[in-house]
Design a binder for these strands. Structure first.
Length: 462
RNA sequence: GGCCAGGUAGCCAAGCGGUAAGGCAACGGUCUGCAAAACCGUUAUUCACCGGUUCAAAUCCGGUCCUGGCCUCCA
């Protein structure tokens, strides 16, 4: 049984998809006006963990991640560089996919772009106009919030008590300040579409309604995003979508908390602003970054610092070394220990149960670490045999489908290094330690660390 | 001002009524030709603060202080 915290009810709920065995999930993706920063990736890593865990639990996951390629910022950027909107956004889209790969973020089934779905948006807006949920004013079209009584149910705002100077002095002509734009009429802006509802461009929220319903249906299982999207973005999506279909839009809303840097909000002016690329340039490893972003529970604020990134890197390094070291036991013949199977079983169950409880990754990792300790004990005691080592590797590979921080490929050493290791073994037997040490240094320069154990020399990648 | 999160060891982080998981770092030990790695052990009488409820509170209630978020287009 999987429990997920639903923002709609502010409670953990038993997860039950509409269609048995399949999860339909929409995750708010990037606005491609710049390189994504690590705060953005915190959300994407959370979504990735959710995606991976649901698959681990046996579900088929159909995920959509939108790409917002038309909004005030992409327009401003294209104008500034005097290029087409597509030319401007293309490089950030490409960069985003590179970054995703770097952090081992699983691909969604669909990455729809807003600019490719204008007709779908227009048709929703037309229905909203027909049904009286929307009105046109001065070339733009707005959603009439007063026509949708449950507005505010996601954010739990009491709109009768909220009025701010900001909303009152809005630049657009609306009936009510809180009404939001579905379609923005344009007069002399360079980017627009000529449609049945006039010349203009879409508002922000409508793209998610149009694209999610196109690929996932009128009602689907999970919709995620950062907490800052709860209001107004997701609130507006609900209003638009439910007004059009008369059906519930989304069953489970999941939102992740923000990332802070050294206890402060990340901002360019404070100089604590990091993109993934910045961190890679500083020499940090992608797996460490992924681990750090992943291992704070998604609903808690994550305080990022380079110190904690180093800690995360060390943790991953240990896990990696553990995985590689297991291959040295695959040569040891003997009967398998029944304890090992039990240890795997317990870890597997603990890992699953922790994640099934609203993605409690810390508890899940604690299971893994205690498993590692148990296996190491057997290893040190010489009780780990090939049959068991293989089972353990298989188990690690399985959970790595969820955590994705262990490099599981390529466990073979090049022949020349194997020869060097043998040569050094011989030198050690002959107590020619000078030669042995120089070979060890030579191999170390190639990124391979040697460990002499009572059972022979092991190697691990640095 | 309204609403919503969070404050747990040097750092990161679980636990959310039954007497403080785990990781990193550090230190001591075992092993080693020396290393490295690994293993074992140690590291919070205490969970921002003050009251209260309870046989029992980090966990519930009230108040205070800090940090962050949202309040119309920021994950």
């Amino acid at each position: 049984m999987i429990m997920l915290f639903n923002t709609l009810s502010r409670k953990k709920e038993v997860f039950k998809p509409i269609e048995e065995g399949t999860v339909k999930m929409y995750t708010c993706g990037p606005t491609v006006y710049d390189f994504a920063h690590i705060g953005n990736f915190r959300a994407y890593v959370f979504e990735d963990l959710l995606h991976r865990f649901l698959e681990y639990a046996g579900y088929r996951v159909i995920r959509v991640m939108n790409i917002t390629d038309i909004d005030d910022k992409t327009i401003a950027g294209a104008i500034r560089e005097n290029v087409s909107l597509q030319q401007y956004t293309e490089k950030y889209i490409r960069a985003f996919f590179e970054d995703m790969e770097c952090l081992k973020l699983k691909k969604a089934a669909y990455f729809p772009r807003a600019t490719h779905h204008i007709p779908e948006m227009v048709s929703i807006i037309k229905i909203l106009l027909e049904k009286g949920y929307a009105y046109e004013k001065d070339g733009s079209i707005y959603f009439r919030i007063s026509s949708f009584p449950s507005y505010g149910k996601l954010s739990q705002y009491d709109f009768d008590r909220i009025t701010t100077a900001r909303t009152d002095s809005d630049e657009y002509e609306k009936e009510q300040a809180r009404d939001f734009a579905l379609w923005k009429g344009t007069k002399d802006e360079p980017f627009f579409w000529n449609t049945d509802i006039g010349k203009g461009r879409p508002g922000w929220h409508i793209e998610c309604s149009a694209m999610s319903m196109k690929y996932l249906g009128e009602t689907f299982d999970i919709h995620t995003g950062g907490v800052d999207n709860i209001f107004p973005h997701h609130e507006n999506e609900i209003a638009q979508s439910e007004a059009v279909t008369g059906k519930k839009f989304v069953n489970y809303w999941l939102h992740c908390a923000h990332l802070l840097v050294n206890g402060e909000k990340m901002s360019k002016s404070k100089g604590n602003f990091y993109t993934l690329r910045d961190l890679l340039k500083k020499g940090y490893a992608p797996d460490g970054i992924r681990y750090l972003l992943m291992t704070t529970h998604y609903r808690d604020p994550l305080n990022f610092s380079e110190q904690s990134l180093k800690q995360a890197e060390n943790t991953v390094k240990h896990l990696q070394a553990f995985h590689q070291r297991l291959f040295f036991a695959t040569n040891i013949n003997g009967e398998s220990e029944p304890e090992i199977a039990k240890t795997i079983e317990a870890a597997s169950e603990g890992f699953f149960n922790a994640l099934a409880d609203d993605l409690n990754i810390s508890a899940a990792m604690a299971e893994i670490f205690s498993f590692v300790r148990n296996v190491n004990e057997s290893f040190e005691a010489g009780k780990l045999k090939a049959k068991d080592a293989e089972k353990i590797i298989e188990f690690l590979n399985r959970i790595n489908e969820v955590i994705a921080v262990i490099e599981t490929a390529g466990e073979k050493l090049p022949g020349d290094i194997i020869c060097l290791i043998r040569k050094r073994e011989q030198a050690r037997k002959e107590k020619n330690y000078q030669l042995a040490d120089s070979i060890r240094n030579e191999i170390a320069d190639k990124g391979i660390l040697l460990e002499d154990t009572p059972y022979g020399t092991r190697w691990i990648k640095k």
